[in-house]
């Protein structure tokens, strides 16, 4: 059997809705991936722990609260501390332009604003895992 792509979709921070995260989760499922959905208000520690136990290839973070500069680097740091530096981190949310290069430099793989086509995300995940 061909290895399945496993993706963790997490919603860190305190903002309250996960509609976007669920849309992405379903799109990835429809593209044949196994998506572990963890729900609202996850701390970076919870996310890294779940990523480890589930041995995922990709962590997708949905952050609408504006706290991405605190949360995303923390998740990357914890993944690395766990020996999972090969896990790709993708970020969706409202990310100001000036933050994008900083996040990319830290190792965030894909960054997606509102209105991104889910097909683009699918394509990017497949590419980066080649």
């Amino acid at each position: 059997m061909q290895d399945k792509i496993r993706v963790l979709i997490a919603k860190p921070g305190l903002d309250g809705h996960d509609r976007g995260a669920k849309v992405v989760a379903r799109a990835l499922r429809d593209a044949g991936m196994e998506v572990i959905y963890t729900g609202l208000r996850q701390t970076p520690e919870m996310i890294a722990e779940a990523a480890l136990q589930e041995d995922v290839d990709v962590v997708g973070l949905s952050i609408l609260s504006g706290a991405h500069m605190a949360l995303a680097p923390r998740v990357l740091e914890l993944l690395e501390a766990n020996g999972q530096e090969d896990v790709q981190v993708f970020l969706g949310g409202i990310i100001p332009d000036e933050d994008i290069p900083k996040l990319q430099k830290l190792g965030v793989g894909g960054i997606y604003g509102p209105g991104t086509s889910t097909q683009d995300i699918v394509k990017d995940i497949r590419e980066v895992l080649q």
Partner: peptide
């Protein structure tokens, strides 16, 4: 059965076990 993918959502209910 169509895509072979899945959304695995059981963890959502298991927050108390985190950490």
């Amino acid at each position: 059965p169509f895509s072979g993918g899945a959304v695995l959502g059981d963890r959502v209910r298991m927050r108390d076990l985190a950490g």
